[in-house]
Design a protein around this nucleic acid. Structure first.
Lengths: 312, 312
DNA sequence: TCACTTTGATAACAAAAACATATAGTTTTT
DNA sequence: AAAAACTATATGTTTTTGTTATCAAAGTGA
């Protein structure tokens, strides 16, 4: 049994296809076939059920692949130890970011980060929280930026900042003349929401439920982006809530529609999250430092109440 | 980096000597030299300081070897998973037993166990608790039988039985006429103890301290075996405490010197202990079942008070 | 200090393993 | 039924791993 064989098994389990798995490992398909056969021979057990199409794991196969993931992870930490020793902050670093954080946070820290750590090859993907969790667990992401707490036992969280919700009230709205909004003012009936899958949507729903246990699924309109939400709101279709950082570059025309909450303002907790194995922890530390340094200048609220990003 | 290379590194770290490590791996010394060089080249870091004699680990080397231990352990679990799947209870199983349990418990269960699980190649060693903990952590023991609780975060415990302390009172002793002993009767001044390193000794000392916070290091006599302890006691040198199982095969002549404690009788907790990685768990389960089945017939006490086996 | 031993490194070579190309044998799609 | 998509197998090449023989350096002891 070699680490290489285990990596091959992982790739096949993932792609459910020898040929594609071979590509992802940068070897030819017969190499995988023979190496997996050798592994199966040595253990004297069948890992993959080639009868099914696409290929499936046997019951033992599933356990073995799970354990193989552990072994490969632990093996990668050897390089990590060496990097740490050398004070080397570099190599590939795959970062996921949720859609409602991506457009505001990324421009703020990216330039600083790549300047300070030029040896890190950043690969950034916009992903929903759910996709992020899967990929971190499967080892396809090194870390991610998401709303927390997530209560996932395999994943650790390190808070970056607390981002207050800000209300966007169109001109014709019943709350137009209020200077400061309260949570009890909110009514999910005239609230514009992001479409399903966005945790910011779930946060808003949780917030609305704080005071009123409203009927679900009666939402009027849903959109895929916050920019659209604002436009829909301007059309008089209802109010909406925005993450604070989104409101920073509003022109006067728009910003006179903004209303902050009375303190303690509801807020989402935004964290850098990573697998509990703490692989590439130096880079995660570095990124945490850069981001929280930058945010310290941008968000000054102190008295906030954290709203859970989880549905239901 | 291969699992084999990591195993070689572990062997060298352990033996502090390439030649001996090579033997333990069943390869020649040049093989180790070149493989370790390859590993060091690949990681571009020095693991072993060949300047020192005997050879020493560098600082990074220590971390790498620690991680290598994890990886090798996790890798061995693959075979474990396969064994579990096949319901196979077999292979080498290295068991440590503390001296004060060995002579009484081993004869009781060994025959049964090898009859029931003939494919397990048992390697049993008599070791002190301290030696056991080191060896389990270094992966040289699969499990051990020892007095617990040990409060060691790397080691899990599964209780086998509670074994009461029994007093052995020689004819001329002040407590001779008492039918049932109480803890408050005990005085460490006239108590014969096992020599240092035995946890049973520490248990007795802890017990004596329950009521009197006596001066330490004023013990009269110490011995390496319980049999000698009894003989010394018969010479009028003091009383002593014995583990219950040791008293079962006493002839009448000896057993009239025995005094049980008033309930709740002080007792030691005897457990099968193993590394938290739960390697070879099927065999540990099997052994636990055999032993506790046999003990159920031999120890009938229910109301006991557990005495810690740890010094101080 | 001078043999002598111990121990790790190196060279040369043999054996084994890993991988590629080419191709055959299945199953699935169309 | 033909084509396409996949995996297995045969064969040869390259790479890796291991062995034996030998060397160099450090430590040991008379």
């Amino acid at each position: 049994m070699t680490i290489t064989q285990l990596k091959y098994a992982l790739a096949i389990a993932e792609h459910q296809n020898f040929t594609k798995a071979a590509e992802s490992c940068f070897v030819t398909q017969p190499t995988l076939s023979t190496q997996i056969q050798k592994l199966e021979d040595e253990l004297d057990i069948i890992i993959f059920d080639r009868g099914k199409k696409p290929i499936e794991l046997t019951d033992v196969g599933r356990k073995i692949v799970f354990q193989a993931r552990n072994i490969v992870n632990e093996a990668e930490r050897i390089q990590d130890i060496v990097d740490q020793q050398k004070g080397f902050i570099g190599g590939e670093f795959r970062l996921g970011i949720i859609p409602t954080v991506m457009p505001t946070l990324l421009p703020m820290f990216l330039k600083n980060f790549i300047k300070k750590y030029p040896k890190v090859k950043l690969k950034i993907e916009e992903l929903t929280t759910e996709e992020i969790l899967t990929r971190i667990n499967e080892g396809h992401l090194d870390a991610a930026i998401a709303a927390t707490p997530l209560e996932n036992e395999n994943i650790k969280e390190r808070v970056l900042y607390y981002e207050p919700f800000v209300a966007y009230i169109p001109d014709n709205h019943r709350l137009k003349d209020k200077k400061a909004i309260e949570v009890s003012d909110l009514d999910i009936e005239d609230m514009l929401l992001l479409e399903d899958g966005h945790c910011f949507r779930d946060g808003v729903i949780n917030l609305c439920k704080t005071f009123k246990n409203q009927a679900e699924e009666s939402f009027q309109l849903e959109s895929g982006s916050i920019e659209t939400l604002i436009k829909l709101s301007n059309e008089g279709l209802g109010m909406t809530l925005l993450p604070y950082l989104h409101t920073l570059d509003f022109r006067e025309k728009l910003s006179h529609n903004l209303r902050h909450f009375k303190e303690p303002s509801p807020a989402r907790e935004v964290s850098i999250i990573y697998h509990k194995s703490e692989l590439k922890m130096q880079i995660i530390d570095a990124m945490h430092n850069v981001i929280s340094g930058i945010i310290r200048g941008a968000i000054v609220f102190s008295n906030v109440e954290i709203i859970s990003p989880l549905p239901k």
